[in-house]
Simulated scan of single mutants.
Amino acid sequence: MSESIHPAAPHHLPGFITAPGDTDVLMIVVGIFLIGVVLGVGNLYLHLHTLPERMAHKSQKFQFEVVAVLGLLALFTHNHLFWVIGLFLAMIDLPDFSTPLRRIAGSVEKLAGVPPDPDPTAPPAETAGHAAGTHGAAAKSEAPGHA
């Protein structure tokens, strides 16, 4: 079957023009490339968007939470000022005011004779007392003269 070219068509057609009914390979390649580029740019954007949170992850919990909230506000409102503030806050090391104040309060309570509040970071007293009692009982049973 010989295909005749329309008389108004140029005699030399570029390679990306396909015959009727054939598969357009260039369109498929460009479509796959476009999907890859969109996914890659989206991944880069999200990686860049989480930069302040990843920087603040090494800092104090309160600072990390504030930076995370600013990042979410920037993401949902498309207001870049929140992201910039979060980035600056993540780059600044905030001083730790709570530890010295907690130690001062503990010292003042000790001077006043008030029993100190239990430290939330310390293990429960029941566990520590139970472990000490177990070791004490084992030492008494092994000691000579005790029955």
Rank of each mutant, 00 (worst) to 15 (best):
D93I: 08
P124F: 03
A125P: 06
N79V: 03
F82S: 07
F82C: 02
P118H: 11
L94H: 02
P95E: 03
L87K: 09
D117E: 13
T134D: 00
L101K: 02
G136T: 14
T127R: 12
D96H: 05
R102V: 14
P95N: 06
H135I: 15
L94F: 08
I92M: 07
V108H: 08
W83S: 04
A138P: 01
K110Y: 03
E109Q: 14
F97L: 15
L81W: 07
W83K: 00
F88M: 09
A132I: 15
F88W: 08
G86I: 00
T127N: 06
T99Q: 02
T99W: 00
M91N: 01
G113I: 11
K140N: 03
P116T: 05
H135M: 15
G86L: 01
S141R: 10
P116E: 10
W83E: 01
R103N: 11
A131Q: 10
D119Y: 10
M91C: 12
G129I: 01
H130C: 08
A128I: 13
A112S: 09
P118W: 03
G129T: 05
D117S: 14
L89K: 07
L89F: 04
P123M: 07
A122V: 08
P118N: 11
L101E: 06
L94S: 11
T99D: 01
H80R: 06
A137D: 04
G136F: 14
G129H: 05
P124T: 04
P118Q: 13
E126Y: 08
T99S: 09
A122M: 12
D93T: 11
